[in-house]
Amino acid sequence: MNVLVINAGSSSLKYQFLNVDTREVYAKGNCERIGIDGSFVGHEENGGPKQKLEVALPDHRTAIKHVFEILKAVDAPIDGIGHRVVQGGWYFPESALVTDETLGWVREVAPLAPLHNYAEADVIEICRDMFAQIGNVIVPDTAFHYHMPEHAWRYALPRDVVDTYHVRKYGAHGTSHRFIWRTVHELRGDKTHRLVSCHLGSGASLCAIEDGKCMDTTMGLTPLDGLIMGTRCGTIDPSTVVYLNRVGGYSIDQIDTMMNKESGLLAVSGRSSDSRDIEEGAHVGDEHCQMALEMFYYRTAQLFAEMASSMQGVDTMAFTAGIGENSAEMRQGVADRLAWMGVHLDAQKNAVRSDEPRVISTPDSAITCMVVPTNEEYMIALDVAELLG
C-alpha cells in the first residue's frame, strides 16, 4: 500500500510518500514559509539529490496542490493519506479515520496546540475536498500516552477544573516512542520489558514503556514540560509565571513566548539552540555552553530515573531523534550521569554513525543502551494501512 504522510505546521508542510510493505520511500520534501515571502518547496525522489523550487505558497491549499503536482512524476498511486496531528486531546486514544466528527475533534482540542492543530485540520479538510476518493487517517502524537495510569496523568488540581477544562498530562512524540518500542522489541524480543525511550532533539521527551504500554512521559499538558530543550525551558516552578507577571511586568503572552521560544539551551548557552553549536562552543572553553551541556545531561539523567521509577525498573534505554541519534558526546554525557545505575557505554560503539539500530553499551552494563533512528512517517503509514485496509 502506498501512503502519503503529511505533517503540517502553521507555516510549513512536510511530506513523505512511501510503500508500507517494502518501506521504499518514493519521495519526500517540505513546503516552507507558507504565507510568508520567500516560500519554497524542497523535494527529493528515491534518495536522489534535493531540489529547491521557489514558488509562491500563499496558503496551505496551494502547498498541497504543489505536492500532488510534484508527486505525479512518481509512478505509484496514492492509496491513502496519513496526517500527523500534534494534539489529540481527550478524543483520540488511537488513530482514527477522518470523518466530519473526528475532524471537528481536531479543531475542538486545538487550543492545547494552536500553532499546529488548526493548520493540520485545515490541511485534512483540503485533502478531503481536493481528493475525495482517497481515504484520510488522523494519527495523533498524544494517542500512545492516552492510557497511561491515572496516577501518572492526573494533576493535583481541583477535580472540577481538571474535568471541565480537560487539564491532564497528554505528552507528545507518541508516534516516535511507539516506533522505538516496536523496533527494540523486534530486535531484542523478551530481553526488553521495561524501556525508557529517549527522544532527544530540539523538542525532547522521555517515555517509560512497559511491555508496549506507556506508563509515563515527561511532557505534560503541553510540550513545554519536562526536559530542557532547544528553546523551551522544560519543568520549572509554576509560580515563575505568576512572579514574572506580577513583579517583572511581563504579559502572559510574553511569558509564553519566552518559555517556548527564548529559553532552553539557547538561553543558557547564549549562543544557539543547536546542540552542535553548543558542543563546539564548549570545546573551545565557552563556560555558558559547558553549563548548557551539563544541565542537559543532568535533567535527562534525572528524568530517566523518574521514568524507570514509574515502571519499578528498567532494562533498556534507547536514544533517538536529532541529538539522540547523532551526538555521541550527548549520549556519553547522559550515560556518565547514570553510571550509579550501572550504565556503561562502549566508547567505540558509541562513536559509530549509522542509520541502523544498534547496541552501544558494554556487555557488563546493567541497562542495555541502544541508538534507534526513529521513523514516525513509517509508523503513521502503518496506521493508515491498518485503518484503510
Score class of each variant (00 low, 15 high):
24 E>A: 13
27 A>T: 11
31 C>H: 06
32 E>K: 05
32 E>D: 10
33 R>C: 02
36 I>M: 14
38 G>V: 01
39 S>I: 02
59 D>S: 04
61 R>T: 03
75 D>L: 02
76 A>I: 00
78 I>S: 07
78 I>E: 08
84 R>T: 07
87 Q>E: 09
89 G>A: 14
101 E>H: 02
102 T>S: 03
104 G>Q: 08
114 P>H: 05
118 Y>N: 09
122 D>Y: 05
149 P>C: 04
154 R>F: 06
157 L>A: 03
158 P>N: 04
172 A>V: 11
179 F>H: 12
179 F>T: 00
180 I>G: 02
180 I>P: 01
181 W>A: 03
184 V>I: 12
188 R>A: 11
199 H>M: 08
206 L>V: 02
215 M>Q: 14
219 M>C: 07
219 M>N: 11
219 M>P: 05
224 L>N: 13
228 I>W: 09
228 I>L: 15
236 I>W: 12
237 D>L: 05
237 D>R: 03
239 S>P: 00
244 L>I: 13
245 N>C: 15
256 D>Y: 08
260 N>V: 04
260 N>F: 09
268 V>P: 01
269 S>F: 06
286 D>A: 05
289 C>S: 14
294 E>W: 10
299 R>W: 12
311 M>P: 05
314 V>Q: 10
319 F>E: 03
323 I>V: 14
328 A>G: 12
333 G>I: 05
335 A>M: 08
343 V>L: 10
348 Q>I: 10
350 N>T: 11
351 A>M: 10
361 S>Q: 09
362 T>P: 03
364 D>Y: 08
377 E>N: 13
385 A>D: 15
